[in-house]
């Protein structure tokens, strides 16, 4: 079917273009890796975690960086990309071709899935081989990682489509999107230990999906002794699934309602 075939052709096209765009490779693809390296090196002598169960900075920060990567590859990359394409006429051009919007989104989401997966793989490999982070050995943990990752990337990508309508022009896209992404990272346990945040801020962060993704990632990569430090003393994977799911559905509705190839009577 040509909608699918065109969508797959878009995936390839989008991925090639993505990796040829130097700034997006740095700010969305390599950024979490750079941050992980900084934390691992800066706090190389500092133990993290409950007494007797301490882990290295690299291990402590890996889950947060994976969650941040999902947010950057999905939400940030997608929303800025579409906002820019809207204002530079790319979408107008596509609107004049027999490309279905469904194929267009297969292309975008495919690109996000592939680049997000490469990014996660790179983070895990560097954490393991460069910083000696122990990786889980049970299949169950990797299964959790897989669903949290896939669910998270899809949700963030869909939310990115919805957010792409927020900036008024392609030029303001980074200025509008990056602060949102940055604030979310600070309150959701990516850069700052979530357990250290005041309860009210934890409650605010719990409304947004990033906190749940970071929590899901911690459940995979941190020892079970860390579970007690979570709000409610549990990894709460059901909560991860429910909150991410709610945002996914909300994002789908928002994208369906707000996305247009062009503003017809601007």
């Amino acid at each position: 079917m040509s909608v699918i075939a065109n969508g797959l052709s878009r995936v390839r096209y989008e991925i090639v273009s993505y990796f040829r765009q130097g700034d997006s490779v740095f700010f969305t693809f390599l950024f979490p890796l750079v941050m992980l390296t900084i934390f691992a090196v800066a706090f190389s002598e500092t133990p993290f975690g409950p007494p007797g169960e301490e882990v290295s900075a690299a291990r402590f920060y890996l889950p947060g960086m994976l969650a941040a990567g999902v947010l950057l590859s999905g939400l940030q990359n997608m929303s800025i990309d579409i906002a820019v394409e809207k204002s530079d006429g790319t979408l107008k051009r596509l609107a004049g071709t027999p490309l279905s919007p469904i194929s267009f989104f297969i292309g975008k989401i495919g690109q996000v899935l592939v680049t997000g997966a490469l990014q996660a793989a790179l983070l895990i490999l560097v954490a393991h081989f460069a910083f000696g982070v122990e990786l889980p050995t049970e299949a169950g943990a990797w299964l959790t990682f897989a669903w949290v990752f896939l669910f998270g990337v899809s949700t963030c990508a869909i939310l990115g489509i919805g957010l792409s309508g927020l900036p008024r022009s392609g030029k303001s896209a980074t200025a509008v999107i990056i602060p949102i992404v940055l604030i979310l990272q600070f309150i959701s346990g990516v850069y700052l230990s979530f357990a250290m945040l005041p309860t009210w801020l934890q409650n605010v962060a719990s409304v947004f999906p990033l906190k749940w993704l970071a929590q899901g990632m911690r459940s995979v990569f941190l020892p079970s002794s860390f579970e007690a430090a979570e709000p409610g003393g549990s990894w709460d994977l059901a909560g991860v699934a429910i909150f991410t799911g709610i945002w996914l559905v909300a994002g789908l509705i928002a994208a369906r309602l707000t996305f247009r190839w062009i503003r017809k009577d601007a």
């Binding site: 090639v16 006429g89 790319t90």
Partner: peptide, 23 residues
């Protein structure tokens, strides 16, 4: 169109091949 954004990172041939594939 009067003005349209091109995918700046694609080559001429890649861009045309991609669009040709949509028709």
């Amino acid at each position: 169109l009067q003005n349209t954004g091109e995918q700046p990172n694609a080559t001429v041939r890649e861009q045309l091949t991609h669009f040709a594939g949509l028709y």
